[in-house]
């Protein structure tokens, strides 16, 4: 205990110093923001996502009709003043269902990405910071898991344990963390050898404190870029599963569910396919542009690569 208190006092006195460091860090973010603002496509993506997320948050108050309200006499009708995007075969307002479906799609995208973020970052930091045989074992596990065809296993999981919502994004999240872990580990390995980490060790911070206070803020750039690429990948995967009937189950709707039901009647009522399809495509566009822009903004050295929701 004696040993612990002294360094902690020292860290207190270092707090002010830390603040200075933080100022430097913030100007990096300022730079990145300025660079991002110059990229019109990325800003378009940013505003689209902001718009979609805010709409999703207030959908229950904003939606013009009830989620399950049917107007069987009306049936499927094209876009009109009463129903801006038309109605489906059961006479349900498509705009309403699109808004609720977007909530689900975005929620799955964000939640699964959050799962992969937590697992991947923890795994990567511990492996990269500890190094040695711990690192070797941890990354060997990642290598082996990488070789497994996870998409097939997620479907198997959904079949075996029923299509529960929680399982859906847990399963997807647990697939997506591998790349995150690799990226983070690479970054941490490079950071570890730098002087400010040695300085932190000398002041007596524990490994956990160093990882949290010094390593974590410095790897946020690549992590954020990868997050913006993981979200569309996850949304795509959810839509893929729901399209096959293995993901979100009706009457709950997601964009994948809406596209699947739209396909069934696309010959007679093409708008039931077109609008959900547009919603998904525009979201994927927006997130990809934003991801590309963020990569260029946060790491100007990297050439704009392929960007990767298919990686």
């Amino acid at each position: 205990m004696q040993k612990l208190t002294a360094p902690e006092n020292m860290t207190d006195s270092l707090k002010s110093l830390e603040h200075i460091e933080f100022e430097g860090g913030r100007s990096l973010w300022n730079d990145a923001w300025i660079r991002l603002k110059r990229n019109r496509l990325a800003m378009f993506g940013f505003w689209v996502m902001l718009f979609l997320v805010s709409i999703s948050l207030i959908t229950p108050w904003l939606a013009p009709y009830g989620y399950e309200i049917q107007d069987l006499e009306l049936g499927a009708s094209g876009p009109s003043l009463a129903h801006w995007l038309g109605t489906d075969t059961l006479g349900r307002d498509l705009l309403t269902r699109l808004m609720y479906g977007g909530r689900v799609s975005l929620l799955v995208g964000f939640a699964a990405t959050a799962v992969s973020l937590v697992v991947g970052v923890l795994w990567g930091i511990v492996a990269g910071y500890t190094g040695g045989s711990v690192d070797a074992v941890m990354m060997r596990i990642v290598d082996i898991l990488y070789a497994l065809p996870f998409m097939i296993f997620v479907i198997l999981l959904m079949v075996v344990f029923g299509q529960s919502f929680l399982l859906l994004f847990l399963a997807i999240g647990l697939v997506e963390w591998l790349t995150m872990a690799r990226i983070v580990r690479g970054q941490v390995q490079a950071l570890r050898r730098q002087d400010f980490v040695s300085a932190a060790i000398v002041t007596g911070l524990s490994s956990g404190q160093i990882m949290r206070r010094h390593i974590l803020p410095n790897i946020m750039g690549p992590v954020i870029v990868y997050i913006t690429l993981t979200i569309p990948a996850v949304m795509l995967f959810e839509a893929f599963l729901s399209f096959l009937g293995l993901g979100v189950q009706p009457p709950q709707s997601s964009w994948g569910v809406l596209i699947a039901t739209g396909v069934e009647t696309m010959e007679e009522y093409p708008w039931l396919l077109i609008f959900p399809g547009l919603a998904l495509s525009i979201t994927l566009f927006a997130l990809n542009f934003l991801g590309d822009g963020l990569r260029d903004a946060l790491d100007p050295r990297s050439a704009s690569g392929a960007g990767g929701i298919y990686e």
Binding site: L236, A239, F240, F243, G256, I259, A260, G262, V263, M266, E267, P270, L273, G277, L280, S281, I282, L284, F285, N288, F289, I309, Y310
Partner: peptide, 22 residues
């Protein structure tokens, strides 16, 4: 290419069917 990436197969397929098939 960007359009191709943002048009997943389960969307592109039905659209192609609708346009070229139907």
């Amino acid at each position: 290419a960007m359009t191709g990436i943002c048009l997943p197969a389960f969307l592109l397929g039905p659209m192609l069917v609708l346009i070229f098939g139907i």
